[in-house]
Design a protein around this nucleic acid. Structure first.
Lengths: 269, 269
DNA sequence: CGTTCTTGTCCATATTATGGACAAGAGACG
DNA sequence: CGTCTCTTGTCCATAATATGGACAAGAACG
């Protein structure tokens, strides 16, 4: 009698709700623009990384400009996140639960280690730096700022987060980010190799950081349901992180990651 | 088929770029959800205030949930701004230029006046509270929090901002907000009357604040090109703001508003 | 057990968003 | 000076999308 039953049960499997292609595309564009931070991103790059056609991206971006969601920089013509986005964000209570829960751990680890500490969350297929603590050692790696957004996989934090999720899901994300990897001089195979190594080690590591001469170590932080939600990273000049010290630092990070996991219960918005 | 092609050449006049109805609608929905802050908004209310049909709003909201832009509250079923919005917002430098420029003035005025001070910006057809300073007087009006969003016209700050713009534009905004006024027990005629009164006075005023027994005074802050960008408001229990003190407070607010105007040059993001 | 709320779903169809093709501006190079 | 090769911007026929009327079903109330 009902043909709805048939279609319904097919859909419920994963959840691809349809009828809003344009909205999804607009959001994909926004996320790419977010990775460009204040400087923004040229249209051509948005076209490349989203895989959409240029007329489509152009239309989306200009409508978003009219709506105040995107801004265009005068001189460069690059597109960037507009000021209505933080205005919408004010609707949520800040700081987030994770930030509150992680605060004492960051404090403690920063004091103990002395090098720069980062807290990075996963958002979609990206990593996003949400907190940074500067240590007492006179040489600090400060290249990554709060708000920095990268494809999952290109930083040690991203590798750690991928290592903490089911292999199949991680592969899917890495594949989805393929087009964006070349800008960071990496590729799918390299990233998957690093993820495997991180699983074996118990933490993420990068001998050659995104900045020349730096090295990073990251541990993952999981939500109560086992999904990785964030990573805690130490970055330092490579000479500061020899094998012995790497071990020390990793132990501190692992200890604090477990403490943060205990501190977050329920939603962490 | 209908011939709207005829309107093509008229486009340059104001700027109605087409081909993105769905995106604009999604943003309209988001702005309504933002007004609901943490508590969120029931679907039916979104339908009412946007004027869209229910299937459309339902579809938009659920796609936004899948994308992480909107969240649904378990118990109440209300829809609210999701955590990906602040994540996107991190792409912009904070705090904004206006906040920096206004800081000393808020400090000074708060110390001088002793009652609660608010800094409110215009965003689209809404007012948005972006800063609040608590004074030294033991009774403080704290109902309005940072992040509070209301239709332009329902608060004294909104009235002040409307008073500072060309009458025609103000009327257009007030008309656009009509559907949302009833929730605040006001209407188009009342708001327009208050706006006219504010123009005459030189500042916005409300004998009956949104909270019973309070009174508010607001001055507008204009950008270099004459557009109102923000308002500075004092709220206090009514008995604290008799005619003489109203005059005093208004003078301080007007003075500081002029100082802020001088401090903001160029873009204020 | 009807009444009146609410939210959720289906699907035929007209409206909308799409993208191929073209245009035009900005550098770079010889 | 033209000629490349970048970039961004625009047009419009048409395929695909998003739309909304109609229906369903749950919740709260009396």
């Amino acid at each position: 009698m009902d043909k709805r039953r048939a279609t319904k049960s097919v859909r419920s499997a994963v959840e691809p709700r349809q009828g809003a292609q344009a909205i999804r595309r607009a959001l994909a564009v926004l996320r790419i623009l977010a990775a460009g931070r204040e400087d923004g991103v040229p249209l051509a790059e948005v076209v490349r990384t989203t895989g959409l056609t240029r007329p489509t991206v152009h239309r989306i971006v200009h409508v978003l400009i009219e709506e105040g969601i995107v801004e265009r920089h005068g001189r460069s013509g690059r597109y960037a996140i507009g000021n209505q986005v933080p205005e919408l964000a004010l609707a949520r209570p800040r700081p987030s639960r994770l930030l509150v829960a992680a605060n004492p751990s960051l404090q403690r680890a920063s004091a103990e280690i002395g090098d720069t500490l980062f807290l990075t969350v996963r958002t979609g297929n990206d990593t996003l730096c949400v907190d940074r603590r500067i240590g007492v050692y006179p040489i600090q790696v400060l290249s990554i700022e709060v708000g920095a957004r990268r494809p999952l996989g290109v930083s040690s934090a991203g590798v750690a987060i991928l290592a903490a999720m089911p292999a199949q899901e991680a592969r899917k994300i890495v594949a989805a980010n393929e087009k964006r990897f070349e800008a960071y001089r990496t590729d799918v195979a390299t990233v998957l190799g690093e993820v495997t190594a991180a699983r074996r080690l118990g933490y993420g590591m990068r001998e050659i950081g995104l900045v020349q001469g730096t090295k990073s170590i990251s541990t993952w932080i999981k939500t109560p349901d086992g999904q990785p939600a964030a990573a805690m990273t130490v970055s330092a000049v490579r000479t500061r992180l020899g094998p012995r010290r790497e071990q020390e630092v990793a132990e501190i990070l692992l200890r604090e990651a477990r403490i943060i996991e205990l501190a977050i219960r329920g939603n962490l918005g």
